[in-house]
Design a protein around this nucleic acid. Structure first.
Lengths: 189, 189
DNA sequence: GAGTATAGCGAACATTTGTTCGCCGTGCAA
DNA sequence: TTGCACGGCGAACAAATGTTCGCTATACTC
């Protein structure tokens, strides 16, 4: 129902980066009264396709951004025709815990390949001082920055690669940890 | 300059999912005239922190969503204090080529671990019929779905795992490819 | 000192805003 | 047939919209 209007709304939001007012949306869908748009919107709000402010302003429905989240790979490929299969998920919201303190780095080298991080990947890191033992960190060792596991043995912190080729790094002085790796992202071209 | 106002704007946008009007923003930042907000906004537009419609409506600056993209890990960790270090990038835009045809699957098993895809990862797949040779696909083999490399030998397509433990799969009948893997995403908890 | 740029105030403006009301045609069920 | 629900139209409303103008007070330069 009302598929045409939904598409028009999405298109407006994509191109204008905001929701239309009733007066703006009216000519787009060929209506001649804002009251008609008002009723149409009421229907779409009922369907939870869009939302409304306290002030009556339109908001994109919470399912607009993000992807449908399906089951396991081996569980079979669900039909995309049926709606409401699984939740929707915005990657930005999902992967970025603290937006202001987060950065993205491109990975070079194969020192973390057994952890599933290979050259060309992007890692999302969060600048923080309190890294937990076992997490992957960006640390300074002898003037250079590397990405490694953060370990502790006998109360002394050190770094470990996820690749047998590389030895553990036991820094002479203190270990300077710049950031903790929160997520990994890889894109195929 | 105007850091407080920028934070307030961001906060409004995050909580309300839209930009404020001048009248709404006025009491928030403690102004008593919309004209003052008007001038403040003019400044922020000059700085390219926000943008304006043809109709005067406020829009989030194009750098609002996304992360600062920094250099290689080994290139050193740039100071986040200096602005304009690298481009900003929205993960949604970056990773999702065709929003309507894209889905997200959680990965089970270790058959693709040498390709850097391990159990618990999320893959973003795009439903399409024309998979390129060498790409990673979601395919149906003997009634079950798996994720493997799509290969061709002597004109005959088959599937190959990225793990020496698993043998190649040469389907008796045709190979049904449901989707192509476009991106991999992993989050640490 | 005088002069000047700047930031905020308050009033005014024409438009646009969301919303409500009554009306009219069409389609469907009783 | 009658009745009723539904979708769209057009007018009306108060309130909010973006914008302009002139005024004032502070801060800075010459």
């Amino acid at each position: 129902m009302d598929e045409v209007y939904k598409k028009a709304l999405r298109h407006f939001y994509d191109t204008h980066r905001r929701m239309p007012s009733y007066g703006e949306f009216m000519p787009i869908i060929g209506f001649r009264s804002r009251a008609s748009v008002f009723k149409l919107v009421a229907r779409l709000v009922d369907e939870r396709f869009i939302e409304k402010d306290k002030k009556g302003k339109l908001l994109p429905g919470s399912a607009w951004s993000g992807l449908r989240l399906l089951g396991l790979v081996e569980a079979g490929f669900p039909s995309p025709a049926e709606e409401d299969v699984g939740d929707k998920l915005s990657l930005d919201d999902y992967l970025i815990p603290a937006r202001d303190a987060s950065y993205m780095l491109r990975v070079k080298g194969d020192s973390m390949k057994d952890a599933g991080i290979i050259e060309g990947d992007m890692v999302i890191v969060e600048r923080t001082n309190n890294a937990k033992v076992g997490s992957i960190v960006i640390a300074e060792v002898d003037g250079a920055w590397t990405m490694k596991y953060y370990r502790v043995k006998n109360g002394v912190p050190y770094l470990e690669a996820a690749n047998a080729k590389y030895k553990d790094i036991h820094p002479k002085e203190g270990l300077i940890i710049a950031a903790v790796v929160r997520a990994v992202v890889r894109k195929y071209h």
